[in-house]
């Protein structure tokens, strides 16, 4: 079957490039926009960028660990109709 144009490898590569360019632009825009920091740390350069990345990375790793402890087979409470 012909692959949909959105999932062809070259399109995916292009989308990644576009995404990275946009990320770089949002960080670069921090030079032009003045933030009014409330706490100090939020005044650091591109605070929301590194904070968002770090918060999610930590969250995902923590969640994975928790999943290993609390995960159960999906029919744990009995079998389902569907």
């Amino acid at each position: 079957m012909e692959k949909h144009r959105l999932v062809r490898p070259q399109t995916v590569k292009l989308l990644w490039c576009a995404f990275l360019v946009i990320l770089a632009l949002t960080v670069a825009a921090d030079l032009a926009v003045t933030h009014v920091p409330h706490f100090g740390v939020d005044g650091s350069f591109a605070f929301h960028a590194w904070f968002g990345f770090l918060a999610c990375a930590i969250l995902i790793v923590a969640v994975k660990g928790l999943g290993a402890i609390l995960g159960r087979p999906e029919n744990y409470y009995g079998t389902r109709d569907d």
Partner: peptide
Amino acid sequence: QLLLFAGLAFFMLQPVLRPARTITL
């Protein structure tokens, strides 16, 4: 910035989060 870099973290760590046929207690 917050959302897009969170998205970057997701796509980079996506293999870690592959869906599994499980439920969580």
